[in-house]
Amino acid sequence: MYDFAYHKPGSVADAVKLLTADPEARPISGGQTLLPALKHRLNRPTALVDLSGIAELKGIRKEGDTLTIGALARHVDVAESAEVTSAIPALARMAANIGDIQVRNRGTIGGSVANNDPAADYPAAVLGLGATIVTDRRRIAADDFFQGMFTTALEPGELLVAIEFPIPEKAGYAKMRNPASRYVMTGAFVARLRSGEVRVAINGAGPCVFRQAEMEKALSANWSPEAVANIRQSPEGLNSDIHGSAEYRAHLVTVMAKRAVAEAG
């Protein structure tokens, strides 16, 4: 690993100042993706800006119909939060099954969402619930946020501060994880919002999390696992690797969507 300077600012403003002043500086929260990337020399920042001391990035709170989770909330914090468990139990269960316990004790929701790994869990919940990404300078709808493999709407130096989730009427998540790496092969997050809108987000299967419009339409008319049972996802453009072909992942989309609806109840 190449060496770098280390900064630990105490506020979002100071962190953004450091990141803006040096385009080669990178923020670090849990570091569960960044550290391995640095070791493999896939990334060579001049400086790391440690966000862990910034109080504005912390906390989980429920206000009205919205659950707001600070960027620094670790997976274990989300899994064990009474607010999350009561407001969006599917989100708490998702967090409880990310990676392994060592990862859950360090990894953060902000880091996972900003990284947008195709095989990450959280992007499915953010897109499936139609959440809003709050940054140091603006608010971004989930539909505009995830732009491609490891690519988001975040600008250089822009910091993800919190995520606002609308509390849904019901939501469910199911995934097939690779038994060795525990990364998502294919997952489906389904939600029926209080506005009546139905959303289905698929992760792991393609280069970026995406919405499954046909399933959304079917579930809007009939919220039941049977409603999606005969909807086939096209394998075109899906990921194909040693762990599974695009055809296999396409098949899993239907299976996971069915299970997610069943879980949502």
Binding site: Y6, G31, Q32, L35, P36, L48, S52, Q102, N105, R106
Partner: peptide, 21 residues
């Protein structure tokens, strides 16, 4: 996971953490 230690009582990987953190 061979490098696992308890940080504030919770298991973490000591290879994926900087001492400064």
């Amino acid at each position: 996971g061979a490098c696992s230690v308890l940080l504030e009582g919770e298991p973490v990987r000591a290879c994926c953490l900087f001492a400064l953190q």
